[in-house]
Design a protein around this nucleic acid. Sequence first.
DNA 1: AATGTAAGGATTTTT
DNA 2: TCCTTACATT
Length: 658
Amino acid sequence: MVRGPRPMPQGQNKTPAIPYASALNPAQYQAVTHPGGPLLVIAGAGTGKTRTLVYRVAYLVEQGVDPRSILLLTFTRKAAQEMMERASQILDARCAMVAGGTFHSFANLILRRYGSHVGYPASFTIADRSDAEDILNLIRTDLGFHKDKARFPKKRALMNIISRAANCQMSVGQVLAQEYPQYEALEPEIEEIARTYARYKEERAIMDYDDLLTKCRDLLRDHPPVRQRLSWTYAHVLIDEFQDTNAVQAEIGAFLASEHGNIMAVGDDCQSIYSFRGADFRNIMDFPKRFPGSTVITLEENYRSTQPILSFTNAIIENAREKYSKRLFTKAEGGAKPIYTRPPSELAQALYVLQRIQTHLQEGVPPHQIAVLFRAGWHSNDLEVLLGKHGIAFVKYGGMKFIEAAHIKDVLAFLKATVNPADTISWHRILQLLEGVGPVTAKRLAENVKEKGLESLVSKSLGKRKYGQSLRILHDTMTQLTTGGEPVSQKIEAVLTAYQPLLEAKYDDAPKRIPDLRSLQLLAERYENLETLLADLTLESPEQALARENGPRHRKDHVVLSTIHSAKGLEWHTVFIIHLVDGHLPSSYSLHDEDAIEEERRLFYVAATRAKCHLYLVAPKVQGQASFYSLATGGPSRFLFEIGRLGKLVRRDDPEAA
DNA sequence: AATGTAAGGATTTTT
DNA sequence: TCCTTACATT
């Protein structure tokens, strides 16, 4: 690996347009003006991590680096977009040309171009999680292992095992030994399913989320000319949220930097919350080992939160079993202590939050500066109903996605099948919408289309079947879509025309679903290319796409509800953390494992550090007996109890007195 | 082979 | 509680 940084071209003006020294603190300044070569920035919560990246982009561009040769890898597309916007504001529009996105979206782009090197055509389709599970289910039934084995893992468990193996670079056997001892005896069978699954996808030009990363890594690893070209294309690689990248992502970053060593990673080990995706907070410390000669810079001055909030969040993370030392401080003084409250029930909790939101709104806090955070998507159900009833607009991030709704998936299956006729799992889905077509017929027809093309849908023998007529209509629609060069919006129109009668036949609540189809159509209008639309929908939650679509004006009228995972990197004036109860946070699924509990603590830390001025800690008393459904034990989160000076750090609020 | 029905079983978090 | 899966019926 060539470590010597490529000399950076000097800008024309001797005096830079941006006053870096006065806009940044010394540590930030050092990071922003780093001459080149590997750089690790350990940035505590609220220490200006994003600011540093934004200025770094502007600095590089100002130095004369071609913005298109800067690659900014972030956790969500939205984050990249916002950073580029901010950089454009402090410098100029050139910053909007920076190549940015998630690892997955970047890999998608690269594989569209170079996929042939790893056995994929440019027209491959992406299977989301439920598509992937459907494939596994087909294989599972096909191979029939469940017949003689009692308790053979279901599609969901199979997916978890296979995905874990991909993300952690382990074999199926290792994953089983480590996490699924109950299935260890089934290793050969599960291995076979995994192999069949891989082959199935390859033969049909389908990639799942994990393939995007691993195939991209394989491409860079096994094809030096491609690696070299890409490395020179991206002369500066910037990676945000590095604590949540897994080994495959880190390898991709390393390969991209292999020619020049200009890799900058920013992250905070205390905020690592994606171990289920194969991230390990300790990895961040391997950076200097992986890139000898690294510069390491730590940012410790917090600009986000008031002192009382910071004292509290410092106390949370103090109890972490293992962390790299770093103590956040702020120069700001004053501010209110976090408020701790125990509503008598979950409903009372929703009422309490509603009332406090109303008060803050009256005080003039803009709606979009108020957020309610929680561990799992359904934790906000009560609150959503209540907010709706009281006319308070909200947006929700995380949890059940638009794209996961069955009717949206149906439409996307049509579109995927036109882009990639070999996508049998999409065909499988479409065909089963027809009356009289079940799993067996669908499978046979799908394989026929893959082997012999669309015409196989209208063979003479099929015409006599009762679903012959439906097949003919389907065939005509799909033929028109594959051959015609009409714009995306027209294609969608054609799909909807064909789909609407099927939707009405299949779902009792069809009228409720139709508006969603219109939203999808609206969303698609600005796309010129169907492949891009499909990739975007699969790789970025449409909520985010819609939020961007509607523009900032629209977003400002809404209070934010979000899972803690989706709140990463964001901040609000007022933050509520609800369901702060043992069994919810920490989640009951993590209680058996110490590492998992540690991660839950970091999750709590991430949530609490989102707050700038007001932080509410809401721990409702759980009523009723613990059923399978409600596993919470009812006591306040252990993370509160373990803070010795809790009484000094928070103010108690008795909701009944209010 | 498709569809309807009853018992069984699992729930976080995301690209 | 709700969704999936296995089984029985058409």
